[in-house]
């Protein structure tokens, strides 16, 4: 790893050079919230964002992604990854991306995800302001922040810049990166430690303790109680950086000889997610709201832990903040069960 300093004044030039080079997706303001959007000008960049409405997974698996086009019985895959730079990703979202990398690689390689992922250079940045529901400092500590190419930490007068990969190296000519002092390195480490410590919300137990105890409460009435007000809307799934379930559909073009097969984000909280058609009706393998609610929490705290090396939750707090019924907060559910 190489380490440099980039002054506040030199950030604009660096970002402007990146924009000239390839599309840059970065946090920008949208009314009172923030979103990852293509950056038109460095003036729109908001590295002081708390969190974005949707996580950056949308760049690797778009909400609707074409898989195959077909015409007159012939078909071909839709793969056209464009080079891009994803700028200003918070550490918890970087962790989520590294989980997604693995999920889309293990057992069956997902070429659609990975062609987009491979074409993307990721530049992380530290959390300067906390989202009101964030708890990333107390969850998923087993997983390192990794898989990104460069990381910027805001320190006095500028940024400490860590260059982690060849892709990161390739961006060095685009900015006025200067030598860094030992004190600046220490200051940056402190900034990131404090960001973890200052999360407004906290889990009280380790991932392993949570994994085992939540699993023991599978048959508890807590799920029914907690999910009573659930609208089964799936918003908690949609905003989650580690949710990746999808549906596949076919669509005809205007003339009935061609069309496309695409996938789109799906949500396990919705009623029809586990439904199969059977003769004379349907069979739903997760019919009750409580079952679907439990499935999400179990999936985040225990089902995928062995596969990922830690829980499939990075503590961004998006689910909690987006839930209309205000029942999705993992911290409230987990801490309640752990205190039993």
């Amino acid at each position: 790893m190489k380490t440099f300093f980039l002054s506040d004044g030199d950030l604009d030039e660096f970002v402007t050079n990146l924009i000239a080079k390839s599309p840059v997706f970065a946090p920008v303001a949208k009314k009172t919230r923030f979103v990852f959007n293509q950056l038109e000008s460095v003036e729109d960049l908001r590295l002081d964002y708390d969190t974005t409405i949707l996580p950056p997974k949308k760049l690797f698996v778009p909400t609707k992604q074409d898989l195959v086009t077909f015409e007159h019985g012939k078909y071909e895959e839709c793969l056209a990854p464009g080079k891009k730079i994803l700028f200003g990703v918070h550490p918890y979202d970087i962790k989520a991306i590294s989980m997604m990398d693995w999920i889309h690689e293990e057992s069956n390689f997902d070429i659609y995800y990975h062609s987009n992922r491979k074409a993307t250079t990721i530049i992380g940045s530290n959390v300067q302001n906390h989202y009101k529901k964030a708890f990333f400092g107390s969850v998923c500590k087993e997983l390192k922040v990794m898989g990104h190419d460069m990381f910027l930490t805001k320190i006095a007068d500028g940024y400490l810049v860590e260059v982690l990969t060849k892709k990161g190296d390739d961006l060095l000519p685009d900015g006025n990166f200067t030598d860094v002092s030992k004190e600046q390195i220490k200051n940056a480490a402190d900034v990131n430690t404090k960001a973890d410590e200052n999360c407004p919300s906290k889990l009280k137990n380790t991932s392993l303790e949570i994994k085992h105890k939540i699993r023991m409460y599978y048959d508890s009435d807590v799920w029914k109680k907690k999910s009573e007000n659930c609208f089964s809307c799936g918003s908690c799934n949609i905003v989650c950086p580690t949710c990746y379930c999808f549906d596949i559909q076919d669509e005809w073009a205007l003339e009935p000889t061609s069309g496309k097969r695409y996938r789109r984000w799906d949500a396990c909280l919705t009623c029809e997610f586990s439904e199969v058609s059977v003769q004379g009706g349907s069979e739903n393998f997760r019919e009750e709201r409580a079952e679907r609610f439990r499935h999400r929490i179990m999936r985040k705290t225990s089902f995928l832990n062995d596969k990922l090396g830690g829980p499939a939750c990075v503590g961004c707090g998006r689910c909690s903040g987006t839930c209309t019924a205000d029942i999705a907060d993992p911290v409230s559910i987990i801490n309640e069960i752990m205190e039993k």
């Binding site: 999920i103 889309h104 057992s107 069956n108 997902d110 990746y244 379930c245 999808f246 549906d247 596949i248 996938r263 799906d266 396990c268 997610f273 586990s274 439904e275 199969v276 069979e283 393998f285 499935h295 179990m298 999936r299 225990s302 089902f303 995928l304 062995d306 596969k307």
Partner: peptide, 23 residues
Amino acid sequence: ERRMKCGVGKCGHCQINDKYVCM
């Protein structure tokens, strides 16, 4: 039997706890 939509352990529809029925 489950809703094995993708058949390759990705889409999540056939999941029973940590198992994918399709895979």
